[in-house]
Design a protein around this nucleic acid. Structure first.
Lengths: 216, 216
DNA sequence: AAAAGGGCGTACCGTACGTTACGGTTCGGC
DNA sequence: GCCGAACCGTAACGTACGGTACGCCCTTTT
Protein backbone atom coordinates (compact mmCIF):
# COMPACT_ATOMS: atom_id res chain seq x y z
CA UNK A 1 0.00 0.00 0.00
CA UNK A 2 2.96 2.28 0.29
CA UNK A 3 5.06 2.46 -2.80
CA UNK A 4 2.83 0.88 -5.39
CA UNK A 5 1.79 1.94 -8.79
CA UNK A 6 1.90 5.32 -10.29
CA UNK A 7 -1.72 4.51 -10.96
CA UNK A 8 -2.13 5.60 -14.52
CA UNK A 9 -5.81 5.87 -13.97
CA UNK A 10 -6.26 7.80 -17.16
CA UNK A 11 -6.02 4.44 -18.90
CA UNK A 12 -8.39 4.59 -21.81
CA UNK A 13 -10.67 7.39 -20.80
CA UNK A 14 -12.37 8.90 -23.80
CA UNK A 15 -12.98 12.62 -23.98
CA UNK A 16 -16.63 12.00 -23.31
CA UNK A 17 -15.93 9.89 -20.27
CA UNK A 18 -13.66 12.54 -18.87
CA UNK A 19 -16.37 15.10 -19.38
CA UNK A 20 -18.81 12.88 -17.52
CA UNK A 21 -16.37 12.46 -14.66
CA UNK A 22 -15.86 16.19 -14.54
CA UNK A 23 -19.57 16.66 -14.23
CA UNK A 24 -19.67 14.05 -11.48
CA UNK A 25 -16.84 15.80 -9.73
CA UNK A 26 -18.55 19.17 -9.83
CA UNK A 27 -21.70 17.59 -8.50
CA UNK A 28 -19.73 15.86 -5.78
CA UNK A 29 -18.37 19.19 -4.65
CA UNK A 30 -21.84 20.68 -4.55
CA UNK A 31 -23.82 17.81 -3.12
CA UNK A 32 -21.33 15.71 -1.25
CA UNK A 33 -22.10 12.05 -0.96
CA UNK A 34 -25.76 12.78 -1.56
CA UNK A 35 -25.34 12.84 -5.28
CA UNK A 36 -27.65 10.48 -7.07
CA UNK A 37 -26.95 8.62 -10.26
CA UNK A 38 -29.87 10.42 -11.81
CA UNK A 39 -28.37 13.77 -10.95
CA UNK A 40 -25.02 12.83 -12.42
CA UNK A 41 -26.67 11.59 -15.58
CA UNK A 42 -28.67 14.77 -15.93
CA UNK A 43 -25.69 17.00 -15.21
CA UNK A 44 -23.51 15.14 -17.65
CA UNK A 45 -26.26 14.90 -20.24
CA UNK A 46 -25.86 11.20 -20.50
CA UNK A 47 -28.07 8.27 -19.72
CA UNK A 48 -27.90 6.27 -16.58
CA UNK A 49 -27.45 3.19 -18.67
CA UNK A 50 -24.22 4.64 -19.97
CA UNK A 51 -23.05 5.40 -16.48
CA UNK A 52 -23.60 1.82 -15.45
CA UNK A 53 -22.02 0.44 -18.58
CA UNK A 54 -18.91 2.53 -18.10
CA UNK A 55 -18.43 2.45 -14.37
CA UNK A 56 -20.25 -0.61 -13.16
CA UNK A 57 -22.10 0.84 -10.24
CA UNK A 58 -22.26 3.85 -7.98
CA UNK A 59 -19.07 3.02 -6.14
CA UNK A 60 -17.33 2.48 -9.44
CA UNK A 61 -18.37 5.92 -10.58
CA UNK A 62 -17.18 7.45 -7.35
CA UNK A 63 -13.76 5.84 -7.43
CA UNK A 64 -13.37 6.66 -11.10
CA UNK A 65 -14.20 10.26 -10.26
CA UNK A 66 -11.70 10.58 -7.46
CA UNK A 67 -9.01 8.83 -9.50
CA UNK A 68 -9.75 11.13 -12.38
CA UNK A 69 -9.28 14.16 -10.17
CA UNK A 70 -6.13 12.63 -8.74
CA UNK A 71 -4.69 12.13 -12.19
CA UNK A 72 -5.22 15.80 -12.93
CA UNK A 73 -3.27 16.94 -9.89
CA UNK A 74 -0.12 14.98 -10.59
CA UNK A 75 2.47 17.72 -10.31
CA UNK A 76 5.86 17.89 -11.92
CA UNK A 77 8.57 16.65 -9.62
CA UNK A 78 11.02 19.16 -8.33
CA UNK A 79 13.98 19.45 -10.61
CA UNK A 80 17.39 18.93 -9.17
CA UNK A 81 18.36 22.26 -7.75
CA UNK A 82 21.65 23.77 -6.82
CA UNK A 83 20.84 23.14 -3.19
CA UNK A 84 21.95 26.04 -1.13
CA UNK A 85 20.03 27.01 1.96
CA UNK A 86 18.01 29.63 0.15
CA UNK A 87 16.88 27.36 -2.65
CA UNK A 88 16.04 24.65 -0.16
CA UNK A 89 13.99 27.12 1.84
CA UNK A 90 12.20 28.25 -1.27
CA UNK A 91 11.41 24.69 -2.26
CA UNK A 92 10.02 23.84 1.14
CA UNK A 93 7.94 26.97 1.21
CA UNK A 94 6.61 26.12 -2.20
CA UNK A 95 5.65 22.64 -1.08
CA UNK A 96 3.97 23.97 2.02
CA UNK A 97 2.07 26.61 0.15
CA UNK A 98 0.96 24.23 -2.60
CA UNK A 99 -0.15 21.71 -0.04
CA UNK A 100 -2.17 24.23 1.90
CA UNK A 101 -3.81 25.38 -1.28
CA UNK A 102 -4.74 21.82 -2.14
CA UNK A 103 -6.22 20.80 1.18
CA UNK A 104 -8.21 24.00 1.44
CA UNK A 105 -9.69 23.70 -2.02
CA UNK A 106 -13.33 22.87 -2.38
CA UNK A 107 -12.70 19.76 -4.40
CA UNK A 108 -10.13 18.38 -2.01
CA UNK A 109 -12.47 18.91 0.89
CA UNK A 110 -15.33 17.25 -0.92
CA UNK A 111 -13.21 14.33 -2.02
CA UNK A 112 -11.76 13.78 1.41
CA UNK A 113 -15.23 13.96 2.90
CA UNK A 114 -16.63 11.16 0.82
CA UNK A 115 -13.46 9.12 1.18
CA UNK A 116 -13.57 9.44 4.95
CA UNK A 117 -17.23 8.61 4.93
CA UNK A 118 -16.67 5.47 2.92
CA UNK A 119 -13.58 4.43 4.82
CA UNK A 120 -15.59 2.77 7.52
CA UNK A 121 -17.57 0.26 5.49
CA UNK A 122 -14.94 -1.35 3.31
CA UNK A 123 -17.00 -1.42 0.14
CA UNK A 124 -14.53 0.55 -1.92
CA UNK A 125 -11.02 1.89 -1.48
CA UNK A 126 -11.71 5.57 -1.77
CA UNK A 127 -9.76 6.19 1.39
CA UNK A 128 -6.71 4.38 0.06
CA UNK A 129 -6.90 6.24 -3.23
CA UNK A 130 -7.11 9.63 -1.58
CA UNK A 131 -4.37 8.73 0.84
CA UNK A 132 -2.21 7.54 -2.00
CA UNK A 133 -2.63 10.69 -4.04
CA UNK A 134 -2.60 13.00 -1.07
CA UNK A 135 -0.43 12.42 1.92
CA UNK A 136 1.71 9.66 0.33
CA UNK A 137 2.21 11.40 -2.98
CA UNK A 138 3.41 14.43 -1.07
CA UNK A 139 5.87 12.31 0.86
CA UNK A 140 7.19 10.71 -2.31
CA UNK A 141 7.83 14.08 -3.84
CA UNK A 142 9.23 15.76 -0.77
CA UNK A 143 11.51 13.08 0.60
CA UNK A 144 14.04 13.33 -2.23
CA UNK A 145 14.34 17.00 -1.45
CA UNK A 146 14.94 16.27 2.19
CA UNK A 147 17.50 13.62 1.37
CA UNK A 148 19.27 15.98 -0.99
CA UNK A 149 19.25 18.58 1.74
CA UNK A 150 20.89 16.13 4.06
CA UNK A 151 23.46 15.13 1.45
CA UNK A 152 24.32 18.77 1.02
CA UNK A 153 24.79 19.11 4.74
CA UNK A 154 21.89 21.50 5.11
CA UNK A 155 19.63 19.20 7.04
CA UNK A 156 20.16 16.76 9.84
CA UNK A 157 17.88 13.84 10.57
CA UNK A 158 17.98 10.11 11.03
CA UNK A 159 14.81 9.11 9.31
CA UNK A 160 13.40 10.93 6.30
CA UNK A 161 9.96 9.61 7.06
CA UNK A 162 9.97 11.12 10.51
CA UNK A 163 11.30 14.39 9.24
CA UNK A 164 8.64 14.47 6.58
CA UNK A 165 5.86 13.79 9.04
CA UNK A 166 7.04 16.64 11.21
CA UNK A 167 7.03 18.96 8.24
CA UNK A 168 3.57 17.71 7.37
CA UNK A 169 2.37 18.49 10.86
CA UNK A 170 3.95 21.92 10.95
CA UNK A 171 2.30 22.84 7.67
CA UNK A 172 -1.11 21.31 8.09
CA UNK A 173 -1.63 21.69 11.83
CA UNK A 174 -5.38 21.71 12.47
CA UNK A 175 -6.34 23.06 9.09
CA UNK A 176 -7.49 19.92 7.34
CA UNK A 177 -9.55 18.43 10.15
CA UNK A 178 -11.21 21.77 10.80
CA UNK A 179 -12.13 22.20 7.18
CA UNK A 180 -13.38 18.65 6.91
CA UNK A 181 -15.54 19.16 9.97
CA UNK A 182 -17.09 22.20 8.40
CA UNK A 183 -15.25 24.96 10.20
CA UNK A 184 -15.27 28.14 8.20
CA UNK A 185 -11.64 29.05 7.90
CA UNK A 186 -10.66 31.33 5.12
CA UNK A 187 -7.19 30.79 3.86
CA UNK A 188 -6.33 33.78 1.78
CA UNK A 189 -3.33 33.79 -0.48
CA UNK A 190 -1.57 35.89 2.15
CA UNK A 191 -2.35 33.63 5.09
CA UNK A 192 -1.16 30.62 3.19
CA UNK A 193 2.05 32.35 2.26
CA UNK A 194 2.68 33.33 5.84
CA UNK A 195 1.90 29.87 7.15
CA UNK A 196 4.18 28.29 4.58
CA UNK A 197 7.01 30.56 5.61
CA UNK A 198 6.45 29.96 9.29
CA UNK A 199 6.25 26.20 8.89
CA UNK A 200 9.41 26.15 6.82
CA UNK A 201 11.32 28.24 9.32
CA UNK A 202 10.17 26.04 12.16
CA UNK A 203 11.18 22.96 10.24
CA UNK A 204 14.62 24.40 9.55
CA UNK A 205 14.96 25.38 13.17
CA UNK A 206 14.34 21.76 14.11
CA UNK A 207 16.24 19.98 11.37
CA UNK A 208 18.60 22.56 9.98
CA UNK A 209 22.23 21.59 10.32
CA UNK A 210 23.88 23.80 12.89
CA UNK A 211 23.04 26.90 10.96
CA UNK A 212 22.85 29.51 13.63
CA UNK A 213 19.30 30.19 14.80
CA UNK A 214 17.23 31.53 11.95
CA UNK A 215 15.11 34.47 12.90
CA UNK A 216 11.55 33.28 13.38
CA UNK B 1 -18.91 29.10 17.87
CA UNK B 2 -15.74 29.50 19.79
CA UNK B 3 -16.25 29.99 23.48
CA UNK B 4 -19.85 28.99 23.91
CA UNK B 5 -21.48 26.75 26.37
CA UNK B 6 -19.97 24.05 28.42
CA UNK B 7 -22.74 22.08 26.79
CA UNK B 8 -24.19 20.23 29.69
CA UNK B 9 -25.63 17.73 27.32
CA UNK B 10 -26.29 15.30 30.11
CA UNK B 11 -29.30 17.45 30.90
CA UNK B 12 -32.02 15.08 31.94
CA UNK B 13 -30.80 11.84 30.50
CA UNK B 14 -32.29 8.90 32.32
CA UNK B 15 -30.26 5.79 32.94
CA UNK B 16 -32.20 4.03 30.25
CA UNK B 17 -31.60 6.76 27.74
CA UNK B 18 -27.90 6.69 28.43
CA UNK B 19 -27.91 2.96 27.93
CA UNK B 20 -29.65 3.42 24.60
CA UNK B 21 -27.11 6.03 23.54
CA UNK B 22 -24.31 3.71 24.55
CA UNK B 23 -25.79 1.04 22.36
CA UNK B 24 -26.09 3.52 19.52
CA UNK B 25 -22.51 4.52 20.05
CA UNK B 26 -21.25 0.97 19.92
CA UNK B 27 -23.24 0.38 16.79
CA UNK B 28 -21.88 3.56 15.29
CA UNK B 29 -18.38 2.32 15.87
CA UNK B 30 -19.17 -0.98 14.21
CA UNK B 31 -21.34 0.16 11.34
CA UNK B 32 -20.41 3.73 10.75
CA UNK B 33 -23.06 5.95 9.27
CA UNK B 34 -24.82 2.91 7.90
CA UNK B 35 -26.56 2.23 11.15
CA UNK B 36 -30.30 2.02 10.81
CA UNK B 37 -32.85 3.05 13.36
CA UNK B 38 -34.09 -0.52 13.40
CA UNK B 39 -30.61 -1.78 14.23
CA UNK B 40 -30.23 0.70 17.07
CA UNK B 41 -33.61 -0.24 18.44
CA UNK B 42 -32.78 -3.93 18.31
CA UNK B 43 -29.34 -3.45 19.84
CA UNK B 44 -30.73 -1.31 22.62
CA UNK B 45 -33.72 -3.56 23.10
CA UNK B 46 -36.10 -0.71 22.72
CA UNK B 47 -38.75 0.17 20.20
CA UNK B 48 -38.26 2.52 17.33
CA UNK B 49 -41.18 4.51 18.58
CA UNK B 50 -39.26 5.20 21.76
CA UNK B 51 -36.25 6.32 19.78
CA UNK B 52 -38.34 8.80 17.89
CA UNK B 53 -40.13 10.01 20.98
CA UNK B 54 -36.85 10.62 22.78
CA UNK B 55 -34.63 11.93 20.01
CA UNK B 56 -36.96 13.26 17.35
CA UNK B 57 -35.41 11.76 14.29
CA UNK B 58 -32.30 10.05 13.04
CA UNK B 59 -30.18 13.17 13.12
CA UNK B 60 -31.38 13.87 16.62
CA UNK B 61 -30.28 10.44 17.72
CA UNK B 62 -26.91 10.92 16.10
CA UNK B 63 -26.20 14.27 17.68
CA UNK B 64 -27.43 13.03 21.03
CA UNK B 65 -25.04 10.13 20.70
CA UNK B 66 -22.01 12.20 19.89
CA UNK B 67 -22.85 14.71 22.62
CA UNK B 68 -23.27 11.87 25.05
CA UNK B 69 -19.84 10.54 24.20
CA UNK B 70 -18.41 14.04 24.43
CA UNK B 71 -19.85 14.50 27.89
CA UNK B 72 -18.11 11.33 29.00
CA UNK B 73 -14.70 12.51 27.85
CA UNK B 74 -14.67 15.81 29.70
CA UNK B 75 -11.36 15.60 31.50
CA UNK B 76 -10.31 17.28 34.66
CA UNK B 77 -8.46 20.50 33.97
CA UNK B 78 -4.81 20.61 34.83
CA UNK B 79 -4.26 21.79 38.35
CA UNK B 80 -2.03 24.74 38.88
CA UNK B 81 1.42 23.30 39.02
CA UNK B 82 4.65 24.55 40.38
CA UNK B 83 5.80 25.35 36.88
CA UNK B 84 9.39 24.48 36.48
CA UNK B 85 10.66 23.24 33.17
CA UNK B 86 10.32 19.60 34.12
CA UNK B 87 6.72 19.85 35.26
CA UNK B 88 5.84 21.84 32.16
CA UNK B 89 7.44 19.19 30.01
CA UNK B 90 5.56 16.49 31.84
CA UNK B 91 2.27 18.31 31.39
CA UNK B 92 2.81 18.82 27.69
CA UNK B 93 3.77 15.21 27.22
CA UNK B 94 0.68 14.17 29.08
CA UNK B 95 -1.50 16.31 26.86
CA UNK B 96 0.15 14.97 23.74
CA UNK B 97 -0.14 11.40 24.83
CA UNK B 98 -3.77 11.76 25.90
CA UNK B 99 -4.64 13.45 22.66
CA UNK B 100 -3.00 10.76 20.57
CA UNK B 101 -4.85 8.12 22.53
CA UNK B 102 -8.11 9.88 21.90
CA UNK B 103 -7.78 10.43 18.18
CA UNK B 104 -6.60 6.90 17.62
CA UNK B 105 -9.44 5.33 19.55
CA UNK B 106 -12.12 3.48 17.66
CA UNK B 107 -14.91 5.66 18.93
CA UNK B 108 -13.16 8.89 18.09
CA UNK B 109 -12.49 7.67 14.59
CA UNK B 110 -16.06 6.58 14.11
CA UNK B 111 -17.45 9.82 15.50
CA UNK B 112 -15.19 11.96 13.39
CA UNK B 113 -16.10 9.91 10.34
CA UNK B 114 -19.80 10.55 10.63
CA UNK B 115 -19.26 14.16 11.58
CA UNK B 116 -17.08 14.74 8.54
CA UNK B 117 -19.57 12.92 6.38
CA UNK B 118 -22.41 15.11 7.59
CA UNK B 119 -20.43 18.31 7.47
CA UNK B 120 -21.13 18.77 3.80
CA UNK B 121 -24.91 18.81 3.81
CA UNK B 122 -25.71 21.19 6.62
CA UNK B 123 -28.56 19.17 8.08
CA UNK B 124 -27.10 18.90 11.54
CA UNK B 125 -24.13 20.35 13.40
CA UNK B 126 -22.25 17.17 14.12
CA UNK B 127 -19.11 18.73 12.76
CA UNK B 128 -19.39 21.70 15.07
CA UNK B 129 -20.05 19.48 18.05
CA UNK B 130 -17.06 17.28 17.38
CA UNK B 131 -14.88 20.28 16.70
CA UNK B 132 -16.04 21.87 19.88
CA UNK B 133 -15.31 18.85 22.04
CA UNK B 134 -12.18 17.90 20.17
CA UNK B 135 -9.80 20.44 18.79
CA UNK B 136 -11.32 23.45 20.61
CA UNK B 137 -11.69 21.75 23.95
CA UNK B 138 -8.05 20.79 23.74
CA UNK B 139 -7.10 24.37 23.03
CA UNK B 140 -9.15 25.64 25.95
CA UNK B 141 -7.43 23.27 28.30
CA UNK B 142 -3.94 23.69 26.97
CA UNK B 143 -3.73 27.41 26.45
CA UNK B 144 -3.74 28.25 30.17
CA UNK B 145 -0.75 25.96 30.55
CA UNK B 146 1.05 27.73 27.75
CA UNK B 147 0.24 31.11 29.19
CA UNK B 148 1.46 30.03 32.59
CA UNK B 149 4.62 28.75 30.98
CA UNK B 150 5.15 32.13 29.42
CA UNK B 151 4.46 33.93 32.70
CA UNK B 152 7.04 31.75 34.32
CA UNK B 153 9.54 32.67 31.65
CA UNK B 154 9.74 29.15 30.33
CA UNK B 155 8.07 29.77 27.02
CA UNK B 156 8.28 32.51 24.46
CA UNK B 157 5.55 33.31 21.99
CA UNK B 158 3.43 36.18 20.82
CA UNK B 159 0.16 34.44 20.28
CA UNK B 160 -1.03 31.53 22.37
CA UNK B 161 -3.32 30.41 19.59
CA UNK B 162 -0.46 30.13 17.14
CA UNK B 163 1.69 28.33 19.66
CA UNK B 164 -1.12 25.93 20.38
CA UNK B 165 -1.70 25.17 16.74
CA UNK B 166 1.95 24.38 16.28
CA UNK B 167 1.85 22.02 19.20
CA UNK B 168 -1.26 20.47 17.75
CA UNK B 169 0.50 19.93 14.46
CA UNK B 170 3.61 18.49 16.02
CA UNK B 171 1.58 16.00 18.00
CA UNK B 172 -1.02 14.99 15.46
CA UNK B 173 0.96 15.24 12.25
CA UNK B 174 -0.66 12.93 9.71
CA UNK B 175 -2.13 10.54 12.23
CA UNK B 176 -5.73 11.67 12.30
CA UNK B 177 -6.28 12.05 8.58
CA UNK B 178 -4.63 8.71 7.92
CA UNK B 179 -6.79 6.96 10.45
CA UNK B 180 -9.92 8.65 9.17
CA UNK B 181 -9.08 7.58 5.65
CA UNK B 182 -8.77 4.00 6.80
CA UNK B 183 -5.02 3.62 6.95
CA UNK B 184 -4.03 0.86 9.31
CA UNK B 185 -1.67 2.50 11.71
CA UNK B 186 -1.14 0.85 15.00
CA UNK B 187 -0.34 3.21 17.78
CA UNK B 188 0.94 1.13 20.61
CA UNK B 189 1.33 2.55 24.06
CA UNK B 190 5.04 2.78 23.36
CA UNK B 191 4.76 4.59 20.04
CA UNK B 192 2.38 7.10 21.54
CA UNK B 193 4.71 7.73 24.43
CA UNK B 194 7.63 8.25 22.08
CA UNK B 195 5.66 10.55 19.82
CA UNK B 196 4.45 12.58 22.76
CA UNK B 197 8.01 13.02 23.99
CA UNK B 198 9.29 13.93 20.55
CA UNK B 199 6.52 16.43 19.92
CA UNK B 200 7.06 18.04 23.28
CA UNK B 201 10.79 18.35 22.77
CA UNK B 202 10.28 19.86 19.36
CA UNK B 203 7.77 22.29 20.75
CA UNK B 204 10.14 23.33 23.49
CA UNK B 205 12.92 23.67 20.97
CA UNK B 206 10.75 26.11 19.04
CA UNK B 207 9.12 28.01 21.87
CA UNK B 208 11.31 27.35 24.87
CA UNK B 209 12.80 30.51 26.32
CA UNK B 210 16.51 30.55 25.59
CA UNK B 211 17.04 27.31 27.41
CA UNK B 212 20.10 25.90 25.74
CA UNK B 213 19.31 23.40 23.00
CA UNK B 214 17.48 20.43 24.41
CA UNK B 215 18.68 17.14 23.08
CA UNK B 216 16.23 15.89 20.49
C1' DA C 1 -58.43 -4.48 41.45
C1' DA C 2 -58.94 -1.28 37.95
C1' DA C 3 -56.97 2.19 35.36
C1' DA C 4 -53.20 4.55 33.20
C1' DG C 5 -48.85 5.32 31.43
C1' DG C 6 -44.34 3.98 29.71
C1' DG C 7 -42.19 1.07 26.76
C1' DC C 8 -41.35 -3.30 23.78
C1' DG C 9 -42.12 -5.72 19.41
C1' DT C 10 -43.90 -5.76 15.01
C1' DA C 11 -46.32 -4.65 11.14
C1' DC C 12 -47.11 -1.04 7.98
C1' DC C 13 -46.61 3.13 4.81
C1' DG C 14 -44.23 6.25 1.73
C1' DT C 15 -40.40 7.50 -0.58
C1' DA C 16 -35.93 7.95 -2.37
C1' DC C 17 -32.68 5.88 -4.97
C1' DG C 18 -29.82 2.22 -7.15
C1' DT C 19 -30.34 -0.57 -10.97
C1' DT C 20 -32.47 -2.31 -15.17
C1' DA C 21 -35.17 -2.22 -19.40
C1' DC C 22 -36.83 -0.09 -23.53
C1' DG C 23 -37.90 2.94 -27.46
C1' DG C 24 -35.90 6.57 -30.19
C1' DT C 25 -31.87 9.00 -32.30
C1' DT C 26 -27.34 9.78 -34.13
C1' DC C 27 -23.34 8.18 -36.62
C1' DG C 28 -19.71 5.49 -38.89
C1' DG C 29 -19.14 1.81 -42.21
C1' DC C 30 -20.77 -0.82 -46.34
C1' DG D 1 -29.75 4.35 -48.29
C1' DC D 2 -29.21 0.44 -44.73
C1' DC D 3 -27.20 -1.90 -40.37
C1' DG D 4 -25.54 -2.10 -36.11
C1' DA D 5 -23.47 0.07 -32.30
C1' DA D 6 -23.34 3.51 -29.06
C1' DC D 7 -25.94 6.49 -26.51
C1' DC D 8 -29.79 9.55 -24.83
C1' DG D 9 -34.13 10.15 -22.18
C1' DT D 10 -37.32 8.15 -19.41
C1' DA D 11 -40.14 4.92 -17.45
C1' DA D 12 -40.29 0.97 -14.50
C1' DC D 13 -38.75 -2.26 -10.76
C1' DG D 14 -37.10 -3.61 -6.24
C1' DT D 15 -35.52 -2.61 -1.97
C1' DA D 16 -33.90 -0.48 2.00
C1' DC D 17 -34.94 2.52 5.41
C1' DG D 18 -36.99 6.58 7.91
C1' DG D 19 -40.98 7.35 10.19
C1' DT D 20 -45.78 5.97 12.22
C1' DA D 21 -49.47 3.16 14.19
C1' DC D 22 -51.11 -0.44 17.02
C1' DG D 23 -51.41 -4.31 20.28
C1' DC D 24 -49.55 -6.23 24.40
C1' DC D 25 -47.00 -6.33 28.81
C1' DC D 26 -45.49 -4.58 32.98
C1' DT D 27 -45.20 -1.37 36.57
C1' DT D 28 -47.10 2.18 39.30
C1' DT D 29 -50.92 4.69 41.22
C1' DT D 30 -55.24 5.16 43.59
Amino acid sequence: MLQPAENDTSEALTERQQAVLDAALRLLVEEGDNLTMTAVARRASCSKETLYKWFGDRDGLLTATVQWQASKVRVAAVDREKLDVVSLTATLERFASDWLKVISSDTSIALNRVAVGHAGSGKDDLGAVVLQNGRFALARRLKPVLEAGRQAGLLEFDDAETAFRTFFGLVGRDVQIRLLLGDRLELTEATIGGDARRATQQFLALFGATTGPLAL
